[in-house]
């Protein structure tokens, strides 16, 4: 067991966890933040995407202890005072989801890529989405949603 001390969605969190606990299970099972999903469990689908110190990371591929001392952002931390984050609003506006399972990961990846690119054309968005899989194959509206945020800046 290790005593963890980290920040999750702006709030300090202290917890004792078994060392082998994956970050995604710490978020879901210990903090009950179930917006972060477990999809493929093999580091490919991106449903578990969160931000660690501002960078998109697959939370199924990192142990919670590795993030001790870090700042974690999950999909639950995006809306402020009941107002959706612009990327969440764009996914709603452009219907960037079908079943919605991949959506939290898609949104965390979208925010990460928007932060790293001043301009985002379709080819770049598609490349940046290589680590996120939508099994409804609803990519066109996801790309539309991300483009709309990039162009509105």
């Amino acid at each position: 067991m290790t005593a963890l001390s980290l920040t999750v969605n702006g709030k300090p969190v202290n917890a004792d966890v078994e060392d082998r606990t994956l970050l995604v299970h710490f978020l879901r099972d210990h903090l009950l933040l179930t917006g972060t999903h477990v999809g493929c469990d093999t580091s490919q689908c991106g449903a578990c995407m969160v931000h660690v110190n501002g960078r998109a990371v697959k939370s199924c591929t990192i142990f919670a202890v590795q993030a001790d001392g870090d700042c974690i952002e999950t999909v639950e931390g995006l809306a402020k005072d009941g107002v959706l984050h612009p990327v969440q609003a764009a996914f709603q506006e452009h219907h960037g989801l079908q079943c919605g399972f991949c959506t939290p990961g898609m949104i965390m990846t979208a925010i990460d890529m928007l932060g790293r690119h001043e301009q985002l054309d379709e080819a770049t968005i598609r490349r940046e989405l290589e680590g996120n899989i939508c099994r409804c194959t609803g990519y066109l509206n996801i790309i539309k949603a991300i483009r709309s945020v990039a162009e509105a800046r």
């Binding site: 995407m49 998109a56 990371v57 990460d112 940046e128 290589e130």
Partner: peptide, 9 residues
Amino acid sequence: IGDPAVRHK
């Protein structure tokens, strides 16, 4: 290499 999340770690 991999994808953006893999490249971050």
